[in-house]
Design a protein around this nucleic acid. Sequence first.
DNA 1: TAAGGAATGTTGACATCGTCTACATGATAC
DNA 2: GTATCATGTAGACGATGTCAACATTCCTTA
Lengths: 212, 212
Amino acid sequence: MSVQATAATETRSYHHGNLAASILERAAEIIDEEGIEALTLRGIARDLGVSHGAPNRHFKNKAALLCALATSGWLSVRDATLDAADATGSSNAHIRLNAMGQGYLRWAFANRSLYRALYHPDVNRYASTELKEAIDQFSQIVRDAVEETQKEGRAQDVPLNVLTVFTNAVPTGAALMLTDPLLHHDVESEGELDRLIEQIIELVVPVAGINK
Amino acid sequence: MSVQATAATETRSYHHGNLAASILERAAEIIDEEGIEALTLRGIARDLGVSHGAPNRHFKNKAALLCALATSGWLSVRDATLDAADATGSSNAHIRLNAMGQGYLRWAFANRSLYRALYHPDVNRYASTELKEAIDQFSQIVRDAVEETQKEGRAQDVPLNVLTVFTNAVPTGAALMLTDPLLHHDVESEGELDRLIEQIIELVVPVAGINK
DNA sequence: TAAGGAATGTTGACATCGTCTACATGATAC
DNA sequence: GTATCATGTAGACGATGTCAACATTCCTTA
């Protein structure tokens, strides 16, 4: 139903008008609704009412489509992470980094399928320049935020890169584990999940007793 | 060359003799050498000098083969983790858990391709009973070890499940990040990696100043 | 404004893949 | 020794990704 959401030009013209964006949009829907293994270039073309060869004009191959999706995913998770920091209204590095971890996890849960697609083998294999840049951007904001906490006195005897990997690993690993139905069968309520997120992140970047 | 390693019966008989095991073995090789997207039932059959339909007698479908691989992977990482604990020769829960984290990470690096296959979408989707059991076994040893450290005084105000997720997330996230060429471009020497592993795990389960 | 190239979509083809069915062969239990 | 079951073979089918040749439309530019 939302298949034809874009390109709402009532005249069904030869040219679609916005096919690349529509393909990405539909691809995201499919991943979310049927899983990434149901993603098919021909299927997308069918859904969009376009010939099976059309997508090739916009994506060199299927891996390129996946990379484009992953790129927007990384940018999106970066934004969510940064927004969470800003939403604290605090300039305290610990409070900000703590919020970033929670924001990251909440994004991962709100976008499980896309989140897991970020680690799909094809994405790693045929990474584009844009994807690499998006990933670098994310890594950079984490590293910067970690560095700020260190300036505030956190784990000053630990090398920055080690502290960064550690800090980043917690939300990453937790997201991977908790979004995996095989690894985590406890069905939980919304509120329970929020509490779990808080508690886990508190163990990496404690903020108890810190004033904004 | 190592393709025909198994089933070295010089008489090329109609029946292969050990096809299931050979398929698994060859599949592991392919994943390691060419990546998981190069894995093909027909390709394996070709490599093993067997008709393209033969693998279907032993694996219901391709996903079942992946699940079998993942199952042995989880059992293997469980063993590596437990062995690392035992290798300490200590009965101190902190020392043992610390070693487990390091053992897990070392296994992940030594078997990157297989490790990443554990999180392949198809594995999640069509998980077998054996796979679920293998995963549960791994989860159990981690939870038990975490519980022991808590009895020794670690983070006693934190619920066990939270502490378990946290403790497990660090090696999991670190392995995922560090085995990803996109996330970690710093090429490092063997010794550097070992040191990094030690330092990261020390941040989750500190053992500095503990006597065996 | 007319023309012509660039962008975009279509059609048909090809190789490959997973999977199914019918059949052949070999092993094993009785 | 024979019957039955497990295992391997051969052929077919539909689906997919990708390519090349062609069609249509857009847009720049003279």
